[in-house]
Computed example of a mutant assay.
Amino acid sequence: MADRRARFSLGRYDWDAIAGIVAAGAALVLHLLHIIETDVLLTIALVVLALLLFRDLRREAQDELLMERSERTETAVAGLLAGLKQPDALLIGPRELRTASEAFARRARGEMVWFNVCLLMFKPQSLFDALLRPALENPAVSAVQFVLDPSERERWEQEVLPKAQAAGGYGKLREPRWVPLSHEAVSFILADTATGTTEAHLSFWGEPFMSRQPGFDIPRYVFHVQAHSDLVGQLVELDRKHRHAG
């Protein structure tokens, strides 16, 4: 290990420059001792300068080659990254669900659509504060529109309205569109973003996406459907179809 370190340390020195300095110093000493003439000293100096210039030219060529290889590598990596397709949806698990849902509501713009969601999840005040309150208090959200099955009407009046009235932004909460949705297993939230695109949080009724707790159901897994996904258009169309049906 010590020998390897010693070799590495020696390899760091610029031996061409050291040899040139030693040769120039030796020539100067010999000249001072009147052993060599001035023209010989000048010749040695020119040779040393030529060697140093050759070293610099060689190093410059190596640097250019290294830069060219680096640029080719960068281009190849950029091509690979461009060829990688972004996933249409990201699965959000129980540990990240509350944080992700709150962040989704705070990023929303314009009208938010809550389609076929289970209102029992708003029964605990903590879940209401994490899921719906950020949307109501988000100044960039102009309206919050629920599309619900008529069976959710009592829960709407008992679990959602009182909490929403006590929260800020109650005026943007619209009367739900009551349409038959008992046959629909899909549940989602649609929201526009600051870039003008639309994203969604998609879930499904029942296990394993919903977790049934005593007295209420809460989401367990949600898909964050990204703006470039064709699935966003399908969800928008599903919402539009049921709105007109209602």
Rank of each mutant, 00 (worst) to 15 (best):
77 V>I: 15
127 L>H: 12
65 L>G: 00
93 G>P: 02
153 R>C: 03
72 R>V: 15
85 K>V: 03
69 R>F: 15
84 L>S: 13
132 L>E: 09
140 A>S: 10
143 A>F: 04
138 N>Y: 07
88 D>F: 05
80 L>D: 12
146 F>E: 09
81 L>V: 14
129 D>P: 00
65 L>P: 00
113 V>T: 08
144 V>C: 14
143 A>I: 05
142 S>T: 12
114 W>E: 04
148 L>K: 01
123 K>Y: 15
79 G>V: 05
126 S>P: 06
138 N>D: 06
73 T>N: 11
144 V>R: 12
96 E>I: 15
83 G>E: 06
95 R>F: 07
72 R>I: 15
85 K>D: 05
112 M>A: 09
63 D>G: 09
63 D>W: 04
99 T>P: 13
134 P>G: 03
147 V>M: 04
67 M>H: 08
83 G>H: 07
150 P>N: 01
149 D>R: 00
69 R>Y: 01
102 E>T: 12
126 S>A: 13
108 A>C: 06
83 G>S: 11
148 L>N: 00
147 V>D: 05
137 E>Y: 11
84 L>M: 11
62 Q>F: 10
140 A>D: 14
62 Q>R: 13
109 R>V: 05
71 E>C: 11
102 E>Y: 03
140 A>F: 14
100 A>G: 10
124 P>Y: 06
118 C>G: 02
91 L>Y: 14
146 F>C: 02
63 D>V: 04
105 A>N: 03
95 R>V: 12
90 L>I: 09
127 L>I: 10
70 S>A: 15
75 T>E: 14
130 A>V: 02
145 Q>S: 03
95 R>S: 13
153 R>A: 08
143 A>V: 01
106 R>A: 09
102 E>P: 11
139 P>A: 11
139 P>R: 03
141 V>F: 09
125 Q>M: 07
149 D>C: 03
102 E>F: 03
152 E>C: 02
72 R>T: 12
121 M>T: 07
73 T>P: 12
75 T>V: 15
95 R>M: 07
71 E>Y: 12
83 G>V: 12
145 Q>Y: 14
123 K>F: 06
73 T>L: 14
112 M>W: 04
88 D>H: 02
154 E>C: 10
109 R>Q: 05
104 F>G: 09
89 A>I: 13
135 A>Q: 09
134 P>C: 08
66 L>P: 08
90 L>W: 06
64 E>W: 13
125 Q>S: 00
129 D>M: 02
140 A>Y: 03
99 T>Q: 15
123 K>A: 08
137 E>L: 08
82 A>K: 15
72 R>C: 13
119 L>Y: 00
64 E>N: 10
116 N>C: 04
120 L>G: 01
108 A>V: 02
109 R>H: 07
145 Q>K: 04
82 A>I: 15
94 P>F: 12
150 P>V: 02
112 M>N: 08
130 A>I: 10
148 L>W: 03
147 V>T: 09
107 R>W: 02
124 P>I: 01
143 A>W: 04
104 F>H: 05
134 P>V: 01
76 A>Y: 14
108 A>I: 01
138 N>A: 07
91 L>P: 00
90 L>Y: 08
98 R>V: 11
92 I>L: 13
76 A>V: 12
123 K>L: 10
93 G>I: 14
139 P>Q: 02
151 S>F: 00
71 E>V: 15
137 E>S: 14
110 G>A: 14
147 V>I: 06
69 R>T: 13
89 A>F: 11
